[in-house]
Simulated assay, not measured.
Amino acid sequence: MHTADWILIFQQSITDYHKTDDVDTPVQNPYAKGTLEFLMYEKNWIDTVQWHLEDIIRDPLIDPVKALEIKRRIDSSNQHRTDMVEYIDSWFLQQYSPISPAADAAFNTESPAWAIDRLSILELKIYHMQQEATRPNASEAHREACTAKLQVLQMQRTDLSTAIDQLLDDIAAGKKYMKVYKQMKMYNDESLNPVLYQQKQ
């Protein structure tokens, strides 16, 4: 599988979410657990729900208590998203573990899964920009501006997916190797966030 397959899975996830368009809708992943397809669908579902949580919290009339609740959901979602990216990278590490890199093999500043993370979010941008480019009650100027932005996003999708495919092909050929660093987020860790650990002293 390459990015063309994953883009279709992202699109399926986005379409499935918008059947209810509700951030509380439970995920119903159609793929077998443990497969890369399962991970890609799960990853995009997290991104899609978080996209809409970010919309909700920007409501200028939102109740402050509700805003705090949404902010904490977004923080939790960010951690879940990071965990899922690292899980996908672990899948790739295992997949390519039999490959012996060439002596002059290099590594990217970005792991495959973090590039795929950007591709997943890019697919959400494309979906929502398409909605805006065709929104009947928007002005013609708005639709034209969004159509121009959509074309740029689609070009970005082509460039990014090509780069990811090339990276994976290079890893498979031993021309590059994976080097993955855990994110080590500190604000969610009770032993590293001073606001949290000072409360226990």
Rank of each mutant, 00 (worst) to 15 (best):
L196G: 01
T147H: 08
T147G: 05
L160Y: 04
I14P: 01
T25Y: 04
M184G: 04
I116P: 03
Y187I: 10
K175D: 01
V85A: 06
K200N: 05
S161T: 13
E69H: 10
L124C: 07
D24C: 05
A105E: 03
N44A: 06
P64E: 14
A67R: 15
F38C: 00
A145G: 03
T109A: 13
K182V: 05
D55G: 07
I62Q: 09
I74M: 11
E190W: 12
H142R: 12
M40L: 02
P112H: 01
T48R: 02
I7N: 11
K176L: 01
N137Q: 14
R72D: 14
A113E: 04
R157F: 05
M184S: 07
S191L: 10
Q28T: 13
Q198K: 12
E110R: 07
N193S: 05
S13T: 12
F10A: 10
S97K: 15
C146K: 13
S191I: 04
R81P: 03
D22V: 10
D47C: 14
R58W: 11
I7P: 06
S191A: 12
M84V: 09
A163R: 12
G34R: 10
S161K: 06
I88R: 01
W6F: 11
Q201R: 09
Y197C: 08
V23T: 09
S120M: 01
V23P: 01
M129Y: 10
C146N: 10
M186F: 08
D16P: 04
N137C: 05
Y17M: 00
I171E: 01
L150P: 00
A163Y: 05
Y187N: 06
T35N: 02
